[in-house]
Design a protein around this nucleic acid. Structure first.
Length: 233
DNA sequence: AAAACCACCAACCGCTGGACA
DNA sequence: TTGTCCAGCGGTTGGTGGTTT
């Protein structure tokens, strides 16, 4: 027995939203709120749209305080660090970037940031580079600093990385300031994710968990094995 | 000038898990 | 306990506009 569709696909409009539809949806939600029922909302608002579509349009575009446009260096850094730690948990990453939506961040990562980071890593991996323990304060977290940390860490073997992760448990101590490395292993901000967050910080496995049970930055994936090869090259 | 290619991003699709009867 | 409904989520698709050939 299949599941009933959320709406009649033949009687709902699909594709891009017109300004009129946007206005109708916004006006309705401004007046009455979502009522916690997106399925019924389009009918009440006089829209020939699927409830899911309305919800997405509201969350990703019409909702107040949505930030559009360029991402800052700091935002880049946060995204990179969180991606390195928790992978594609876009909703959690979005929760750390006020005004940004998960869809926005996902698109940004897939189309720009990933390439930007790969490019930077290729440049910033001189063989003579020493292994360093980054000690960057949270405020200075930027793409360049994250890349520096990543490139340094990628020189490590898995056991070194593993011991580094374990040695960073001090971050549970609120008195110590978080470092970029802390973000790769366990972003402290994850402890404060919202009530709607499905994955709690404690549910997140250690990053880069590999089949041999060790954590290795060598297993950081940027979407595909070919990209990984590029990083290893 | 126009065809081909590419990058971006809005929107859709289908799965998951919580809530509830 | 089981089945259903629905919100939320991440992955994917396809339209659009810009760039290159």
């Amino acid at each position: 027995m299949g599941r009933a569709p959320c709406c009649d696909k033949f009687n709902v409009k699909r594709g891009r939203w017109s300004p009129e539809e946007d206005a109708k949806l916004k006006e309705y939600i401004d007046k009455y709120g979502t009522g916690g029922n997106w399925i019924a909302l389009p009918h009440k608002a006089g829209l020939k749209r699927c409830g899911k579509s309305c919800r997405l349009r509201w969350l990703n575009y019409l909702r107040p305080n949505i930030k559009h446009g360029e991402f800052s260096e700091e935002e880049d850094g946060i995204i990179c660090a969180l991606y390195a730690s928790i992978r594609s948990k876009w909703s959690i990453i979005a929760a750390q970037l006020p005004g940004r939506t998960d869809n926005d961040i996902k698109n940004y990562w897939n189309t720009k940031l990933k390439k930007k980071l790969i490019g930077t890593l290729n440049i910033s991996r001189p063989h003579e580079q020493k292994m360093v323990q980054p000690t960057l304060p949270l405020q200075s977290l930027s793409l360049s600093s994250v890349c520096h940390s990543l490139s340094s860490l990628m020189q490590m073997n898995s056991s070194t990385w593993y011991s580094n992760c374990n040695s960073n448990h001090h971050l549970n101590d609120a008195k110590s300031s978080p470092t970029a490395l802390d973000f790769f292993s366990f972003p402290p901000s994850l402890a404060n994710v919202g009530p709607n967050t499905r994955l709690s910080a404690t549910e997140n496995p250690p990053l880069f968990q590999t089949h041999d049970g060790l954590n290795s930055m060598n297993f950081l994936e940027f979407g595909s094995e070919s990209e990984l090869q590029l990083l290893r090259a």
